[in-house]
């Protein structure tokens, strides 16, 4: 065998090193290129939407009902519908999701039922959203007789984002050190006192992050809402929840037919006239800005949280 520093061997080693360095460089270039292509594609897509939709984004666009005339059409009933549905979704998903998360982290014994629940939450997150639409169609619309209403839609989306809220709650609760709980127990607090006075307040910001991400997802969901039978042409608003007569609040709006932003956009995309497609672009811009703002807020909150809290 030749010694290590024999010229033949050295040359061979140098070739091997050069070969691998070339591959390394190639991988780096491929990575940067792939990232650039992806970013440029996204810029091109959103850029085209901005160019098409921006001229339509006037005040009237937000305050007009949909119309047969594209120049007069707006998204009033759509954004009102989306807002009301988000209220229902948040009202249903937040308490249920947080309660489930608290149970799984703080109360659940290690047994078969707990394991089944945990596997279930993971699986539910992977169920296609249109399946939730079918569930809602059979359960809410027909069996419970809620009809094609704001309540049905809100509950459907609540089921859809429940896994997101549960997982976020669990992660937020898990990050609180055991010493906090031990301190509370040492002072004689019961389990619920510990949870409600310490664990939940300290994990509130983390839970909020998850709730915002969930709601941002719900705002853009189209398929399950179509499945329960949302109307695409709504030229009226549901009755206001606040009345000027006694008892001042009304829940009439819960049972009203509705449309939402993504369905309004879907409706405009499917029309052949180009003017409607510009409306679709404008509605899409509003939708994208809304979800970006919400997700951005959530990411910012999480960043702040990681930075500020040192137990």
């Amino acid at each position: 065998m030749l010694p290590m520093n024999h010229p033949d061997n050295l040359n061979e080693i140098r070739t091997i090193i050069a070969y691998h360095k070339r591959w390394d460089l190639l991988a780096l270039v491929a990575g940067v290129t792939a990232l650039m292509i992806a970013i440029l594609t996204f810029i091109a897509l959103f850029g085209s939407m901005v160019i098409d939709g921006m001229p339509r984004l006037t005040w009237e666009f937000f305050t007009s009902f949909p119309s047969r005339k594209p120049e007069a059409a707006g998204i009033l009933s759509a954004w009102v519908g989306t807002t009301l549905i988000m209220l229902v979704t948040a009202a249903a998903a937040v308490p249920l999701g947080v309660a489930a998360g608290v149970y799984l982290e703080e109360y659940a014994p290690k047994n078969l039922i707990t394991e089944i629940i945990e596997i279930n939450v993971t699986n539910l997150a992977g169920v296609p959203s249109i399946i939730y639409g079918l569930l809602a169609l059979g359960l809410f619309v027909y069996q419970l007789g809620l009809g094609q209403s704001i309540l049905s839609a809100g509950l459907t989306l609540a089921l859809l984002i429940l896994p997101i809220v549960i997982v976020a709650t669990r992660e937020a609760i898990r990050s609180i050190p055991v010493s906090i709980r031990e301190g509370a127990y040492a002072l004689g607090a019961t389990k619920w006192q510990t949870v409600s006075d310490h664990v939940l307040p300290y994990s509130a910001a983390g839970i909020l992050t998850g709730v915002i991400i969930g709601l941002a997802r719900a705002i853009g969901e189209t398929a399950p809402i179509i499945t329960i039978g949302a109307l695409t042409f709504i030229a009226f608003l549901p009755p206001s929840p606040i009345q000027d007569q006694f008892p001042f609040v009304s829940f009439q709006w819960l049972m009203e037919p509705f449309t939402v932003m993504p369905i309004q956009m879907f409706n405009w995309i499917s029309r052949p006239q180009e003017a409607f497609q510009h409306n679709a672009a404008a509605a899409g811009l509003v939708l994208v800005v809304m979800t970006l703002l919400m997700n951005g807020l959530a990411i910012y909150l999480r960043y702040r949280l990681r930075k500020n809290i040192k137990w």
């Binding site: 897509l45 085209s48 939407m49 098409d52 991400i213 941002a216 997802r217 705002i219 853009g220 969901e221 189209t222 398929a223 993504p262 956009m265 879907f266 995309i269 497609q277 679709a280 672009a281 899409g284 939708l287 994208v288 979800t291 970006l292 919400m294 997700n295």
Partner: peptide, 13 residues
């Protein structure tokens, strides 16, 4: 987090 209906718009138009 971008809604899928927006991607549908991109695909068609």
């Amino acid at each position: 987090g971008i809604p899928t209906v927006v991607y549908g718009y991109f695909a068609l138009l």
